[in-house]
Design a binder for these strands. Sequence first.
DNA 1: CTAGGGTTAG
Length: 431
Amino acid sequence: MVIRPSSLRSKFLRKHRKWPTSAYSYKWQQTFIQNQALQTLKQSAAATPQEKENNDRPHHLFSAHVHSFTSYNCDPTPEAYHFVIKTLAKTSQVHHIPRVLDRIEFAEKFETPEYILAQLIKIYGFAGRIGDAIDLFCRIPKFRCVPSVYSLNSLLYVLCRSSESLKLVPEMLLKCQVMNIRLEVSSFRVLITALCRIGKIGYAIQMLNYMINDGYGLDARCCSLILSSLCEEKDLALSNFEVLSFLEAIKKMGFTPSMMDYSDVIRFLVKEGRGLDALDALCQMKVEGIKPDIVCYTMVLHGIIAKGDYGKADELFDELLVLGLVPDVYTYNVYINGLCKQNNVEAGLNMISSMEELGCKPNLITYNLLLKAVNKIGEISQAKELMTKMNLKGVGVNSQTYRIMLDGLFHKGDVDEACVLMEEILDKQLC
DNA sequence: CTAGGGTTAG
């Protein structure tokens, strides 16, 4: 028969208890006294700030710890040790933690709560002590604690922080099999998040494959994460090829993209000058029953206009209105940009009043776009008028505004006016 | 809790 240590301990307590009370009451008093001891310890740690800064006295906290518990004639609690460890970490005395650990291992009997050890793994990791973190992980059973995926995730998190320690991950995954810890979806999330963060998206996709092969099922969060990382990937040779094919692949495996997923993809496609692909993605959304919001439409509209397909742009604008979406400044600016590119300045200027009627205030960008277009067709006086209107409406100008105006004036050969404007710029120190 | 994500030009 297996006798669990906890039942052994309670038998021992019943036999040797000091108070003629029930076990419940005894426990209560014990907890109370331990709390008092912990309070004393915390006070003594807080009361000596000058010693905290003094690294020559590393034993202070630790001896205070022992002392406060012996003076209350009770055993230190795991929480007390936790406090000591946290304090040592906070005061950059991580190198003194091993002594504390030794004491927990050899002098104490309690079952150490796993979170304390898991947290220490992270402390070690952030202090750059990868070796200590790994050692601690392997040593967890010595602290009368059964390591679970919780500790493993902490370790994986730490290992994934640098490319150097990343190499140790496969070894640790094997090791945890021996320790009988089964990876959970959360572990994969830790790995994939970290891999994406350090730009190792290829490895992240590999992890996703392992996950599927090991029967964990496809995790939507992992998919979204990899997808958005691919969209942000700077190596275009890689991402241009991957983004859509990756999306296609995970969709086949049962992933249903959310609006955010599509937003990421559309933003990527537009940035890459693939406006038509962005439009396709938008259609795909609708097919899948997701109503694209105004941001999606604005991005696609931008992409289409960049391609010069103004007919499609108009269609798209109509469509969004039909869907009941309300265009905002971003949308109007994109649209106005399209009108300006077609040299349809008239329509662009009319948009200002339309916007105002619809309760959408034109902003600096709106005016800059139109100023540029007006100057382009050589209507300097109209541009000046527009600038006055800007001021009137309380829309401040920026250096871009002045550059546009100077450009216009020089283009016209109006050097005098340009000089006047130049002085105004110098006055405002907007150079 | 319903944001965030999106607009000029260099």
